[in-house]
Design a protein around this nucleic acid. Structure first.
Lengths: 213, 213
DNA sequence: AATTGTGAAAGCATTCACAGCA
DNA sequence: TGCTGTGAATGCTTTCACAATT
């Protein structure tokens, strides 16, 4: 059984490998991956072992082979179509980012409440009014949604998505959102990230001052 | 010693409490916080204990008191000034989000390579050319930076920030960035977040299918 | 000699179980 | 009775140590 933490790292390894492959390097060692990711080589080997990726003593891992195996594990063979709710700056940034980011994942529709945005095609993606959310999703095979709506709208949007049959949500809202427990919720908490960073900087400083004495 | 995970949750509890306070509710129970955050009440009590926040049996925790104590722990009493590098859609979204988000954290300057953006004031924040990055930061007390630059520019930007004396970086780049180990690096990995979500949805589905048989 | 693969140990984080208190 | 506070147990994750391999 592969843990979620391992899956996260495997996604990262795979991203590296595509760069490595572009340099037409055919083999890679666990310690090279580890160095790039600032983790240990044992961790990398353990993750790859869990994923069923095998290397060769002395020769390391075959890049193409690893990429194939990781894609078999991580990708939906049928491709993954995703929708986005909320076309503010953040929504647009994500549209741009995922546009052509990975051929397997595509944002196929967007939704917004703002009549200025609905009906238009933004970054190659049609923007519908939220009223159409359920019908558009029901007519598609989309199972995953990205939520970039204001905090106040987060819970109602999540409920709407759950009602439309969505099975996984990545949300950027800084307030907790409740979903039924058969729906996977990934919260990207930017506010906490920054607060944590400022806290950690103060901690490191304090430690240094103590050390100086 | 408070762990990073605990700090993250404390940031989240605090955010809730400000809402609770707005409803002029004076006390709150660990199980209420837990329910909102979808975690256990024991976890909440343990975190608050670690933070030195005490409650009263039967009466729960005093909201104002907890807010004060958490702010003492989490906030820089002098306020925290932050800079942002990269004014694409994502940079602008963050500028807007943190604008007035929390009085204690302020984005005081932005940087970009694009001459169209530099020299202008965007969302109340002056945008400088990156060439001025070090001098602007050196003239300020800023210790934390947010990086929203393209993947290809991530490492050079991080080096630039490190050279300018920055002590903490929150980055959105999907490629690993190396910083000296006395600099705190918080990576918000959106690509991994979405890949993980699609993977988890497939897993949950598989499990259901197995259960059905 | 350098690298992978992995059982076992160590280290962290969460949860249990329950004492103490109002 | 219903809550907080917390030592101890459990469970999860990483690291160690080393056998196996080329």
């Amino acid at each position: 059984m592969i843990t979620v933490k391992t899956i996260e790292r495997l996604c990262q390894y795979r991203r590296l490998l595509t760069d490595v492959q572009a340099e037409s390097k055919s083999g890679i060692f666990s310690h090279e991956i580890a160095e790039t990711c600032s983790i240990t080589a044992v961790q990398v080997r353990r993750d790859l072992m869990d994923a069923g990726v095998c290397g060769h003593p002395k020769r390391g891992y075959n890049v193409t082979e690893m990429l194939e195996q990781l894609s078999d594990l991580l990708d939906n063979p049928a491709g993954e179509e995703v929708v986005l709710v909320g076309l503010g700056d953040l929504g647009r940034a994500l549209l741009r980012f995922f546009k052509g980011y990975h051929p397997n994942i595509n944002i196929v529709a967007a939704f917004d409440v703002d009549a200025q945005k609905t009906g238009r095609v933004i970054m190659g993606c049609r923007c519908h009014p939220v009223e159409e959310l359920e019908s558009v999703i029901r007519q598609s095979t989309v199972r995953v949604a990205i939520m970039t709506v204001p905090a106040a709208a987060a819970q109602t949007t999540a409920d709407l998505l759950a009602g439309a049959g969505i099975r996984g949500i990545m949300t950027f809202s800084p307030v907790p959102v409740k979903v039924p427990d058969d729906i996977f919720l990934e919260t990207i908490d930017i506010a906490t990230g920054l607060e944590k960073a400022t806290y950690m900087v103060r901690q490191i400083n304090k430690k240094k001052e103590r050390a100086r004495q």
